[in-house]
Design a protein around this nucleic acid. Structure first.
Lengths: 221, 221
DNA sequence: ACAGCATAAACAGTATACGAATTTAAGGTC
DNA sequence: GACCTTAAATTCGTATACTGTTTATGCTGT
């Protein structure tokens, strides 16, 4: 028997909405109200409330006086998260390099191929998905669980930022190029090389973000 | 008017028990049951439940089938957390060095004096408290909020480990000595020096822990 | 005495209900 | 028509009640 670990409703709802948030299926206009969601699932407010409060405490949602919404990231917070990423991700990726299975490398290669294909098609959504696949793949191989969970905690924020910066063609090309290089260094399993490349990866993301931020500041008064 | 932000019962209980956990007032034998605590506070189960579930999700408590207890940290988890600390705390402290006020430095000095006084008295509890004061002081000056909160998240675990390693006289002396050096480098406000010292501080803690761990493994079969 | 089963106690999850706070809407006054 | 007052609606926090599951207890038979 599979011995199902008795999934509670609140956990089902938590997973469901965490997925929706991480897949970017919610907009800043959405207001999540427990009674409404409870009606959709045909349950009472309580499990929904539990799930939403947990998501809010973990930073995936912001609690307001009128339902839960996506959190507004300030410029400052985004820069702070980039600093955290610079500190954690290079080392995490280096650790992952030694632990990646051939299967992982294969799915990494597939995702990188997808990423490169978007140069021709210009399919930003696909590039976004490929980027997430790559990230998920190496993150899942990080052997230090505490480190991995810490990185996962600000994953939602990262996606929001990346989505906003990928409209820039130069950023897209840089991202695709870095994806290809990541496959190379991960395959070589040289921790030092991986560490350096991931640092450059995070820095490139930061530059992209700053460029988009400044452009926006100039365009809109 | 001070415009009190309307403290909810669940937040009061959360703060109360977070404090008790962080001050080490709970043992592994304590089993926290919502109905019991609810009776003490003369409230219903719900706010207590909210508070405990939050503490559990944040890693301060472990939820079992029979009440909440302090989490058992495995050897592996402790090593993983030391790795996180090596990555985050040196940089965080360097940032704090530039932001420390004279007031902060004064209370740092006071705590370091306390720490040194325990060499003569052998008062381990006081050394523990002084250590926490020092840590709290510089952490509160870290300007990167996300970084600071990430570090705070595993603070409870750190305390449990330190408490267990401080019985070793050599470790106590090392700790006190490092405290004095920390005051010096923080006062100099040289980020690079602070970064290096805090790295050595974390490494010393790790060595202390490993020594205690191995000794215990030898003594008890 | 002890294995095995039945029963009760303890506890978490969920449901329902009520009250308080705050926003939105409506109505009235100048 | 702008502004203040008041009413209604919305939503959260808390209380109480119920249910199911897990652990402890006690009983029975051999």
């Amino acid at each position: 028997m599979p011995n199902q670990p008795k999934r509670h409703i609140k956990d089902v709802i938590y997973d469901e909405y965490l997925g929706r948030i991480q897949r970017g299926e919610l907009t800043h206009e959405d207001r999540l109200v427990d009674t409404t969601v409870a009606a959709e699932f045909n349950v009472s407010r309580m499990p929904v409330r539990d799930a939403f409060m947990r998501l809010a405490h973990e930073g995936y949602l912001a609690s307001s006086t009128r339902g839960f919404t996506l959190p507004e990231l300030t410029h400052r917070q985004i820069l702070e998260i980039f600093e955290l990423r610079r500190l954690l991700e290079p080392r995490a990726a280096a650790l992952a390099a030694y632990a990646l299975t051939d299967e992982d490398l294969a799915s990494l290669e597939h995702a990188v191929d997808l990423s490169e294909s978007t140069i021709a098609s210009g399919d930003i959504a696909l590039l976004f998905n490929a980027s997430e696949m790559i990230r998920r793949t190496w993150l899942s191989a990080v052997p230090n669980i505490e480190l991995r969970d810490t990185i996962l905690r600000y994953m939602a924020q990262i996606q929001a930022v990346r989505m906003a910066t990928l409209h820039d063609t130069a950023s897209q090309r840089t991202l695709v190029s870095l994806h290809r290089q990541m496959l190379t260094v991960f395959s070589s399993r040289k921790g030092v090389d991986v560490e350096l490349l991931i640092l450059r990866f995070v820095l490139a993301g930061e530059e992209s973000y700053l460029r988009a931020h400044n452009t926006r500041a100039e365009t809109a008064p």
